[in-house]
Design a protein around this nucleic acid. Structure first.
Length: 476
DNA sequence: TGAAATGTTGGGGCG
DNA sequence: ACGCCCCAACATTTC
């Protein structure tokens, strides 16, 4: 009689390059695929609304590719898994590792409890290319500077492992009767705000592969410059697929490498994309080594005394995309509608919230957490601290983005602003990033009434900048 | 993966 | 022809 192995899916919702699944398949075992929507996540980091919506579809897609054999549960894995083993007589549980602090701890306990009961447990690397404990400085300390981490740490560790093929013809254990329906996971909200997101995304493993090949075919060789143009298709848009593990970072890495070997041109641009995968690894490295100072406390303790403003009205205006700065508002509206924001604009809106409005970066972090389909603890936390200047290898605080100049530089034709702030779309390029400077005739011609159809700036950037710098200077 | 302030240079207007 | 000033253009420094 063949062995039955529970494959506990978490953030690895794919068949290809799935080491846990692959290993069970190679053993010729009967597979019992399981996903548990756990309720033991700390309150602040419960799945956000957009993230839930994505997960719903990703699970649906995974279930299809597992020939409807995915068993869904809600509750605590530490209760559900042993019960499941009791029910099915499964011999082993395999999973791919997660790196959130609370999951790490919990998984360790589950492993011990199961092993004490004579159940075999194996965990695998699937979500990262270089796991944090394998990369350290010559002194044995964790890297805190990206370039050193990536060049001397990651790249010196050698070419990443090749991705594993998807197993064909899996043998499944019978579906478990206690499993619940996808609808019962509580992932789809009552209000149907997500309808508008549906047209922006195609979810699941196959879509993730398509997104990657589309990116490699059309954008990767102009990545270095075009990735900064929010009005243009220049980025990979892989982030949600990577977060849920619909595609592995190793696959992305090696597909780009393959392209590099076959293409005649320079690899400069595609190398920049690979280094972005490196930034993802760096974020996980920080989360792993500095977990208590990553998600809401500043890594740089000097910032504990920063005079953050509880500016509720400003925060609301920011969230709604009504700050009066077109590039900021366009970004915030894109986030709301699409569950995603272009990376260049993420930096601009974050700089604006933190430095122009002097609102604590954790407020922005929370809002992104709820709105982003790619909400990811490591990336979101590290990136907010990066902009705030209090993270590892962070942008210095005094590097304050000017929303007008950023708009003019990276959205020179106003395409991005026009798409997300259509009320401004008839303004000439010269004024589309600063409508308050346009004369009355120009405004009327474009159908813009400041303070009515579009807000006036809620702060004066130049004054706000001075105030932020003054506050920063007082820190010691 | 900035922007503003400050410094330097050099051409051209002009007495 | 010369010195002086103005100011763009560019470079450097500072936040």
């Amino acid at each position: 009689m063949s062995k039955t192995i529970i494959i506990w899916f978490r953030q690895d919702l794919r068949r290809e390059d799935n080491p846990a699944l692959h290993s069970a398949y190679e053993e010729g075992a009967k597979i019992l695929p399981v996903f548990i929507e756990d309720d033991d996540t700390p309150k602040s980091w419960k799945r956000g609304a957009a993230s839930k919506w994505w997960l719903y579809h990703s699970l649906q897609s995974l279930n299809t590719s597992l020939s409807n054999n995915l068993n869904l549960f809600t509750g605590k894995p530490q209760d559900i898994l042993p019960a499941l083993i009791q029910d099915t007589g499964a011999d082993a549980v395999y999973w791919n590792r997660c790196y959130e602090p609370w999951r790490k701890e919990r998984d360790k306990e589950i492993k011990k409890a199961l092993e004490d009961d004579g159940v075999e447990v194996k965990s695998f690397k699937a979500g990262l290319i270089w796991e944090p404990w394998t990369i350290s400085t010559k002194q044995g300390t964790p890297y805190k500077v990206f370039t050193a981490f990536y060049k001397n740490g990651c790249l010196e560790a050698g070419e990443p492992d090749r991705p594993l093929p998807a197993p064909d013809r899996l043998t499944y254990h019978n579906k478990v009767s206690s499993a619940v329906k996808l609808e019962e996971l509580g992932l789809i909200p009552e209000k149907d705000w997500y309808k508008k997101m549906e047209k922006h995304w195609s979810i699941g493993e196959e879509s993730a592969k398509n997104a990657l090949s589309h990116f490699i075919k059309h954008s990767v060789d102009d990545y270095n410059t075009m990735r900064d143009r929010p009005g243009v298709e220049g980025t990979s848009k892989l982030s949600p697929h990577l977060h849920f593990g619909e595609i592995s970072p190793r696959t992305a890495w090696h597909e780009v490498r393959k392209h590099q070997h076959m293409s005649k041109g320079s690899n400069k641009d595609s190398d920049v994309f690979l280094s972005e995968l490196g930034w993802r690894e760096f974020s996980y490295n920080l989360l792993y080594h500095f977990e208590d100072r990553i998600t809401d406390k500043p890594l740089n303790e000097k910032f504990k005394n920063f005079p953050w403003q509880k500016n509720k009205n400003a925060l609301t205006a920011w969230k709604k995309g009504k700050t009066g700065y077109p590039i900021v508002d366009a970004g915030m509206r894109q986030l709301w509608e699409k569950g995603w924001m272009h990376n260049r604009v993420r930096m601009i809106v974050a700089s604006f919230l933190i430095k122009d409005l002097m609102v604590h970066w954790a407020e922005g972090e929370k809002w992104f957490w709820d709105c982003l389909v790619d909400a990811d603890l490591a990336n979101n936390s590290a990136s907010w601290q990066w902009v705030a200047g209090c993270g590892a290898d962070a942008a210095p605080f005094f590097r304050i983005f000017n929303p007008v100049l950023q708009g003019e530089k990276f959205d020179p034709k106003g395409e991005y602003v026009s798409e997300w702030c259509p009320e401004l779309s008839k303004l000439p390029n010269k004024y589309i990033h600063k409508p308050w400077e346009a004369d009355q005739t120009t405004l009327e011609k474009a159908g813009v009434k400041l303070g009515d159809t579009y807000p006036r700036p809620i702060v004066d950037h130049s004054e706000a900048r001075d105030e932020a710098l003054t506050a920063y200077k007082k820190l010691k």
